[in-house]
Amino acid sequence: MILILSTIFLILLIIVGKARGFKTFILFYTSFILIATYILLMKLGFNALAIAIIICLLVSLFTLFGFNGVNEKTKSSFISIMIILIFITILTFLVSKNANIGGFSSDSIESIGGFSYEIGYNMNYVMIGIYLVTSIGTIIDTSISISSALNEVHENNPKLKQKELFESGMNIGKDILATTINTLFFAMISFFIGYFLWHQSETLSLMLNYKSLIQEIIKLFICFIGSILIIPITSYVFSKRILK
């Protein structure tokens, strides 16, 4: 099934996007391999948080410079993404450190029942790492959209001052934001539908306190926060660097 769908995906990409479509396909499967590597490193017992950050770095490097080339747009995006990554890591760590956010709750007992729980690996750090890796996709996407659009604005109107360029980045960002929030919400919606169908006959306070739900809500909010904050930061970094 994966093979059939991948083939269709590839053919459509090449029809619509020609060479760029093919590159998209390569990018997709490179990211897939990076995520698999990330899991492999966790299996081998490396520090979950450290490898999550390294994977985020690699994904950013590959998507920006490998896929979009080395230029002012991608350099500014890279700097902005690194700033956000540091911020999100601190935020996620502060929020999740004491919240015992990793692990499974009783509603997934059937899936995990066959395994030993003594895995000698802290699931809380696994979860913090997952939050970072999940949010990096949308952060890169938003950042590159803004710096490309700003580059276009700058080329059409090179006389714009830094402040005006920053403002126009913020305006572009506002439009992107609405669709990004929707994309993220719908990407995660089927979990919520499944979850509430499963727990539909429980009391409200019980229903809302399962770890599996909280994990997913926190993930959604962290993605939201990352994709909002990247807007002013990319606008600022790009407008500062291009007019240097």
Binding site: S31, I35, F104, S111, I112, I130, G137, I140
Partner: peptide, 29 residues
């Protein structure tokens, strides 16, 4: 052509990463 790009990656990172806890548990077993 410009629109095609990182959108498929967003889907991969936001949807597919949800399997990681289960896969970590299984592979650590």
């Amino acid at each position: 052509k410009d629109i095609i790009g990182t959108m498929s990656n967003v889907m991969l990172f936001t949807c597919w990463t949800s399997i990681i806890p289960m896969v970590v548990l299984a592979t650590r077993n």
